[in-house]
């Protein structure tokens, strides 16, 4: 078990290396384009171009360029944005990470809890009106665009009904540090959490229901019934447990992607300076160093989330443990 774990972590490092190499090649070794010109941004003076060339070692072989780049990102952290005139990239990205993490983790708690409840209740009452209602609600949740939902909630809680007793607690848009103001942190994030999680609650609830209903057809469920166990126990201990694999797989992929910047729309709607927003702005300005850094950061989270999922597999399913 421990060995398998270490192996998995080793694999992760290997994949990370591969990704950083690939990203570097895409950005700096695409034939026919001068990387210095792209880093320097539009309308750069020849002096700036020359400075970029020197700073990134573009007159040297590729592997030196790669090492220089990695050093700038991971060791010295002094990668500089030329578009934004001397802005240090690494601290800028690091500033946005807590915002995105707060948003995604809070939403993840909501969506895991509620989708579990919906999936289990729907599977337990399969075929009944409760099941059908839950599944239709889930479908509605999936079909509501995040930016629309977010704007609607903003409209209701920030302007129209803000002064009623129901929403007067909602603070203005923006982000408050957890360490400075825990209560403010929580209150500003409640509405974004709900917005972001609705889609996933619907999706996960439906996926989980389908997985449980499928498990309930298995032979071992018949064995469990023959043992004289209660329906609740059969559902929770036998059917749910074996259905969690699909759930955890999805969760790992979505969580990794969201932390990596896919929560962009929610961040924009609620004025949160997260990773997605940063990447979005950098794309508008063609700010290559920032894009490169956020892409690396995002891939890091996706890979890490996948490793965590694999480890969870080992806990959920003993067959994976010994395979």
């Amino acid at each position: 078990m421990l060995l398998a774990l270490l192996q998995r972590l080793g694999q992760m490092v290997f994949v990370m290396f591969g990704i950083s190499m690939l990203v570097f090649l895409i950005f700096f070794a695409t034939p026919g384009a001068d990387p210095a010109a792209r880093i320097a941004g539009r309308n750069a003076t020849p002096e700036v171009l020359e400075a970029v060339r020197k700073s990134f070692g573009f007159d040297q072989p590729f592997y030196v360029q790669y090492l220089t780049m990695m050093k700038k990102i991971f060791i010295t952290g002094d990668l500089t944005s030329f578009v934004n005139r001397g802005w240090k990239v690494v601290p800028a990205v690091m500033d946005t990470v807590p915002v995105t993490l707060s948003l995604v983790m809070g939403a993840a708690v909501l969506w895991v809890v509620f989708s579990l409840i919906i999936g289990i209740v729907a599977a337990a009452t399969r075929g009944s009106w409760i099941d059908k209602t839950l599944m239709v609600l889930g479908l509605i949740g999936i079909s509501m665009p995040v930016y629309w939902l977010g704007e609607m909630l903003n409209l209701i809680t920030q302007s129209r009904y803000h002064d009623t007793w129901m929403f007067s607690w909602v603070p203005p848009l923006g982000y408050k540090n957890f360490s400075d103001d825990p209560k403010g942190w929580f209150l500003t994030l409640v509405i974004p959490w709900i917005t972001l999680s609705i889609l996933y609650i619907g999706l996960y609830g439906r996926v989980l229901r389908a997985a449980i209903v499928e498990s309930l057809q298995e032979d071992y469920i018949r064995t469990a019934r023959a043992k004289g166990l209660s329906e609740a126990r059969i559902l929770l201990r036998h059917a749910l447990r074996t259905s969690l694999v699909a759930f955890v797989t999805l969760f790992g992929l979505d969580f990794g992607a969201l932390v990596g910047g896919s929560a962009l729309l929610t961040e924009v709607v609620f004025g949160l300076q997260g990773v997605g927003k940063l990447t979005y702005d950098a794309l508008l300005n063609l700010d290559l160093p920032i894009i490169m850094t956020t892409v690396l950061y995002a891939s890091f989270f996706v890979v890490m989330a996948n490793a965590v999922v694999d480890i969870l597999y080992m806990l959920i399913d003993p067959r994976v443990r010994t395979a």
Binding site: E218, D219, Y220, R222, T223, A224, R225, A226, K227, G228, L229, H238, R241, T242, I316, D317, P318, R319
Partner: peptide, 19 residues
């Protein structure tokens, strides 16, 4: 069921919960 009347199934490969 399971106490006074018990059952043995055909396919032992699938009759037990894998986890």
């Amino acid at each position: 069921r399971g106490k006074e009347i018990a059952m043995i199934f055909q396919d032992p490969m699938t009759a037990l919960t894998p986890v």
